[in-house]
Design a binder for these strands. Structure first.
Length: 424
RNA sequence: GCGAUCGUAGCUCAGUUGGUUAGAGCGCCGGUUUGUGGUACCGGAGGUCGGGGAUUCGAGCUCCCUCGGUCGCCCCA
């Protein structure tokens, strides 16, 4: 590589071959499953006014304070490449009057951008699939959304991943719990890890899933959200769990599971690989495959009417890692051109076109030395190989074919059809 | 933002305690052989050993800086 060739941006990826097929498989499966649940496809811009994210995610969150790709455009507006989907969808919902479609079941996928240190399963440009139900206050919406997520993972053939479920309560129960956590941890602040001391200020809920050994002794006796839930919030959560049981979605309660962004209420969930599973191994330190929750407060933060909503997003790269390599489509018919005449090329191209119009994957091998074109056709792994050559007088010879009898039979009509035309 | 680790041909990697023109396999290109054709053999192109500086008679191998990759912490999908 020349040293004046520009390098790719850090944390971006160029995906090729079997990995790209895995990526496509995830997206295709998502598109199929989302239709089964009647989620409507939406598309949003990749960038928004910075305030869309700043106001909805919370100014103090790490995502907003240090991970956004923000820039000033030529008109002087501060714009930001979307670090997540939900805020942009909320904005679109409000500015387009999508309230008329409420409850709106929406699905999308595409690239997101966060300025982070890349590591296994984390990139600066990464891709997510996303599903939201907007304008639905009832727990059945949570259930449907989770059922879809569960089915998606199954259809992707991903095993060893379990739904971890929690409730953050409504606004007031969440605040009461938060206050109790601050009280509790402040009393032992000196003994906490540096990270957790900082979390005490910024996001006390996060202390609960600290990995630091110094914090662990205090976690078991920390205040539980269950003690702060209002009757309504408790009933809501029960309706969700009952619904999941009815839908046959397996779940476990995860009392320490919280969400990083400010707008979440009630249901919070993540699909996480089981410890020791192949999935956990494949993901490295990135435990969450799919995560989301209810965000009843988000629309108001953008100046809209109070609008209940639930949603989730999943990293396509992470799902693709769990799906494993996917083969590229097999070549069914390879056509080797054993010469350089126009007549031969024409015969090859026409045969290929005929095959493709019949739904047969075909490729013509006409580059490199004529001698080795057949070898290339063989190495392509094609099921059937056809070779075109000319006799010494320059007359096109009928093509020789090679392959299993079954394959020759299946593709044979193309060959016969061509032979007919050739004789005319 | 912090830490660990790695960075040699297109790819995967060798390169001994620093010492002559930096190697292999695969891939690519050409040829020979075989001949109904996925073999074998021969040859070729391709590297300023990530970049810069230092030490040394001499550095791919040592030291420093820097830029990347990978993995982890934070945070998060």
């Amino acid at each position: 590589m020349s040293k004046n060739t520009p390098k790719a941006i850090r944390g971006t990826q160029d995906i090729f071959g079997a990995d790209a097929e895995a990526f496509a498989f995830v997206v295709e499966t998502f598109e199929r499953v989302r239709r089964l649940y009647r989620f409507r496809r939406i598309e949003m811009p990749v960038f928004e006014k910075t305030e869309v994210f700043a106001r909805s995610l919370g100014e103090t969150t790490d995502v907003v304070s240090k991970e956004m790709y923000s820039f000033e455009d030529r008109g002087g507006d501060s714009l930001t490449l979307r670090p997540e989907f939900t805020a942009g969808i909320a904005r679109a919902y409000l500015t387009n009057g999508w309230q008329q479609h409420a409850p709106l079941k929406a699905a999308t996928h595409g690239p997101l951008f966060r300025y982070e240190r890349p590591q296994k399963g984390r990139y600066r440009q990464f891709h997510q699939i996303d599903a939201e139900i907007i304008g639905a206050a009832e727990p059945q919406a949570d259930v449907e959304l989770l059922a879809m997520a569960d089915q998606l993972l199954k259809e992707l053939g991903i095993e060893g991943v379990t739904l971890h479920l929690n409730t953050l309560g409504d606004g007031t129960s969440r605040e009461a719990w938060r206050a109790a956590l601050i009280d509790y941890f402040s009393a032992v602040k000196d003994q906490l890890s540096e990270d957790s001391q900082e979390r005490l200020e910024k996001n006390p809920l996060r202390i609960l899933d600290s990995k630091d050994g110094r914090d662990k002794p205090f976690l078991a006796d920390a205040p539980k959200i269950d003690d702060f839930l209002s009757d309504k919030a408790r009933a809501f959560f029960k309706a969700v769990t009952d619904g999941l049981d009815a839908a046959g979605v397996k779940w476990v309660r995860a009392e320490a599971l919280v969400r990083g962004l400010d707008y979440y209420r009630h249901t919070a969930f993540e699909f996480i690989p089981d410890e020791g599973s192949a999935a956990a191994d494949a993901l490295g330190a990135q435990s969450t495959v799919l995560g989301g929750g209810r965000y009843d407060g988000l629309m108001e933060s953008l100046g809209g009417p109070a609008t209940p909503a639930v949603g989730w997003a999943a990293g396509i790269e992470r799902l693709a890692m769990l799906v494993g390599e996917r083969p590229e489509s097999e070549l069914e018919l390879a056509i080797a051109i054993e010469g350089d005449s126009e007549q031969l090329f024409a015969a090859g191209v026409r045969t290929a076109m005929m095959a493709r119009s019949e739904g047969i994957t075909a490729e013509v091998f006409a580059a490199g030395s004529p001698r080795k074109r057949f070898d290339k056709a063989v190495k392509s792994g094609a099921k059937v190989i056809m070779a075109y050559s000319e006799d010494p007088d320059g007359k096109l010879e009928s093509p020789r074919t090679k392959g299993d009898e079954a394959d020759l039979e299946r593709i044979g009509h193309v060959l016969r059809e061509f032979a007919l035309k050739l004789s005319n």
